[in-house]
Structures are given as structure tokens and as C-alpha cells.
């Protein structure tokens, strides 16, 4: 699968990973394949804290300065350690907060100048499966519908990750109505 070619053709892609056990490695593989082509990536995480992700990026010789994090998990698990280039959301259920954080980043809000914000050109959302752990299916669908359209109207590209075991769920049938492509890897 040529992810860059897929992103050229499609704005919003849903990528399904085989299982939870290879999630971390697949994520790194994705980042390595797209890193050179995008200048500024907004990484929205429901799985790992921004700090953990930065450590992983550095371990894999990827530049964390390229990434802006919206961290929905650190405050929930009371994880310590402040991270620059990061906006925290109080809880994985606070989807309005998440939307506001995304809008601030995508519109290069003046209050973010301390992060030296460049215009983001790709959203990486990890993951729809984790989002479903914390939110009802209908809430998830409505949020993702809003979010996909917000991404499109800002002329951005996105990759939404989901685990294959979740792809059979009805919720994915609804989400694929607003995604451009669903790809299994």
C-alpha cells in the first residue's frame, strides 16, 4: 500500500490496523512513511501521552518539532511532564474541547505563538477505537462527521486509525459515509 499516493488522491483516510499488539509498530511505520512529505503534523492521541510519543519519535530518528499534539489522555491518567507543542484536553470524553483545540491549531490562533506554530498540513488521529472506548457510538459518529468536514473545509488531509476488530462495528459503516477511503493494513 502506497500511503502517500492514497493521501494524494484522498483527503480523509481511515486506516485499519490488524490488532492492538502491532499498533505501536504500525504507527511508527506510518510516521516514517509520511514524515518527509508533510511539514507540520497534528497528532491527536487517545492512546499514548504526548510525552511517550515524543520519546518514540526520537527513538526512531523522527523530528518531534514537526509534530503538534492534542493530548486527550495525559490529564485523564494524571500523567506528569509538560510537553511543548501540545494542547491538552481534560478528558477523552471532552470532544468539544478537542474541537476547540483543533480549531486553534488549524487557524494558527495568536495565543499559540509560544509553540511557533506552522500551518498544519496533516492530521493523524489515534485512534477511532480508543475514542469508542470513552464515548458512545452515536456521539462518536456525530463528532467524526463534524471533524471530517472541518478537516475538509480547512483543506487538510487526515489519517484516522482504527483496529480491524472494530471495523465490523456498525459505527464504521456510518463513518465511511464521510471518509474518502477505508484501507486495511
Amino acid at each position: 500500500m502506497d500511503l502517500l499516493a492514497e493521501l494524494k488522491e484522498n483527503k480523509n483516510i481511515i486506516l485499519s490496523f490488524k490488532s492492538h499488539s502491532n499498533h505501536k509498530q504500525e504507527l511508527i511505520n506510518i510516521l516514517k512513511s509520511i514524515d518527509s512529505k508533510f511539514n507540520s503534523i497534528c497528532f491527536i492521541t487517545f492512546n499514548q501521552t504526548a510525552k511517550t510519543l515524543i520519546d518514540e519519535l526520537e527513538k526512531n530518528k523522527l523530528n518531534p518539532e514537526k509534530y503538534f499534539f492534542i493530548d486527550s489522555i495525559s490529564e485523564e491518567i494524571k500523567s506528569n511532564g509538560s510537553v511543548k507543542n501540545c494542547l491538552s484536553v481534560s478528558s477523552p470524553t471532552s470532544l468539544t474541547e478537542l474541537s476547540i483545540a483543533f480549531l486553534k491549531l488549524s487557524h494558527q490562533s495568536p495565543e499559540l505563538t509560544e509553540f511557533k506554530t506552522k500551518k498544519i498540513d496533516l492530521i493523524l488521529f489515534d485512534s477511532i477505537s480508543s475514542l469508542l472506548l470513552y464515548n458512545s457510538e452515536i456521539k462518536t459518529v456525530k463528532f467524526l462527521h463534524y471533524f471530517f468536514n472541518s478537516i475538509k473545509s480547512n483543506n487538510l488531509k487526515s489519517i484516522f486509525i482504527i483496529l480491524e476488530e472494530d471495523i465490523q462495528k456498525n459505527v464504521v459503516k456510518e463513518i465511511e459515509l464521510f471518509a474518502d477511503k477505508v484501507i486495511k493494513i
Binding site: 462527521h145 471530517f148 465511511e176 459515509l177 464521510f178 471518509a179 474518502d180
Partner: peptide
């Protein structure tokens, strides 16, 4: 209220 993608419209 749904705004569909091209994929969604085909479905």
C-alpha cells in the same frame, strides 16, 4: 445533516 464524501454518496 450529514455531508457525505464521494464514497458515502456511492454507498
Amino acid at each position: 445533516v450529514a455531508h457525505l464524501s464521494e464514497l458515502g454518496k456511492k454507498i
